[in-house]
């Protein structure tokens, strides 16, 4: 599904990603862990198409298409979804309003019929229930005045609505209390299928108690320096990142 080959990216002339290789197949959950500043969020941003980064080398293929050539909206249409680490607040735009526009754009691209207000409402009710979100909440300005937990729930709600093939969750666990973490994890788990894949970007192992990854990768200084199964996360939790740094020889 996703094939990242020797991806290099820099921001303002500073090289952040120094040759990432990663392959994600349908049905898989990959966790990308690493200390602060290792390039985790840059990877998420580059995959979603944020303009601040310059791609200096390598390629990213999504279902055999060149992902890096696509605009952010085209990536979304193809089925890539980024759950933001810091979801933006947009006063004056309700979640429901913008999401209806978004969903119909995605459906148009997929050759599906536009959803009318009734069908949209029905779908929204179903997904809101999954994320334990009140419908009135979705009529409010997008993320404006929402707590950290509400914003993250809203991200996964949007993911449920858009039904992407590849979801990238950028530090979705940060700022969540244990109840919110459970709701978010349940949401992600219930959306898992053999046709879609998830990349979890996280600093802590805690999230992985609830969303069990198939693979764990350690990103350090812009490179994946270690990969393993879910037990690698536990080892990182127990021993910290220093031993990985030692192993890499720094």
């Amino acid at each position: 599904m996703l094939s990242i080959n020797n991806l290099q990216a820099s921001v303002e002339g500073k090289e952040i990603l120094k040759g990432i290789n990663l392959t994600v197949n349908p049905g898989e959950v990959h966790a990308i862990m690493g200390p602060n500043g290792s390039g985790k969020s840059t990877l998420a941003s580059v995959l979603a198409g944020r303009a601040d980064y310059e791609i200096t080398g390598g390629e990213v293929l999504f279902e055999d298409k060149d992902l890096l050539e696509m605009s952010p909206e085209e990536r979304s249409h193809e089925g890539v979804f980024l759950a933001f680490q810091y979801p933006v607040e947009i006063p004056g735009v309700s979640t429901a309003n913008f999401l209806k526009t978004a969903l119909n754009e995605v459906r148009k691209h997929r050759g599906e019929e536009q959803l009318d207000a009734m069908d949209f409402l029905k779908l929204m009710k179903e997904k809101a229930k999954l994320m334990d979100i009140e419908l009135s909440f979705l009529q409010r300005s997008l993320n404006e005045g929402f707590s950290g937990g509400e914003k993250k729930r809203n991200e996964i709600f949007q993911m449920a609505m858009l039904n992407p093939k590849l979801s990238i969750l950028d530090e979705t666990d940060s700022g969540l209390d244990i109840d919110a973490l459970k709701i978010v994890s349940n949401g992600v788990n219930s959306l898992r299928s053999e046709n879609n894949a998830t990349i979890l970007i996280t600093h802590y192992q805690r999230l992985l108690d609830y969303i069990i990854p198939d693979f764990v990768h350690v990103l350090y200084k812009g490179k994946i320096v270690k990969s393993g199964g879910k037990e690698l996360a536990l080892e990182l939790e127990a021993r910290g990142y220093d031993w990985v740094k030692d192993e890499v020889g720094e």
Partner: peptide, 8 residues
Amino acid sequence: FYLRSRGI
């Protein structure tokens, strides 16, 4: 970017 990343 946020809105575009949702397909708009």
